[in-house]
């Protein structure tokens, strides 16, 4: 079970990332616990200033843009 957090404020991009994870995890048959983090203090706690950010199993993996589907695939297969 992978623990995935999407860090995001209000830009709408974060929902895009959430949906990408949901769809691709389903397609790959990987079980994930997906969570959206909107609390600023928490987001900054990960050192992220530009959302959306992606945290996988507690480690920051990406920040600043909607990641490409291939990178999401790679994270899910790790």
């Amino acid at each position: 079970m992978k623990d995935i957090k999407v860090l995001g404020g209000c830009c709408g991009n974060c929902d895009t990332v959430m949906k990408m994870f949901e769809a691709q995890a389903k397609a790959l048959g990987v079980e994930i616990a997906l969570e959206k983090v909107t609390d600023m203090a928490a987001i900054l706690g990960y050192g992220v200033m530009k959302t959306p950010g992606v945290v996988i199993d507690g480690k920051l993996a990406h920040a600043g843009s909607v990641p490409s589907p291939s990178r999401i695939d790679a994270w899910l297969k790790e």
Binding site: L44, G45, Y46, G47, V48, K59, L60, A63
Partner: peptide, 8 residues
């Protein structure tokens, strides 16, 4: 607020 070092 304490900001984490972004270890990207």
């Amino acid at each position: 607020i304490r900001m984490g070092e972004s270890a990207l």
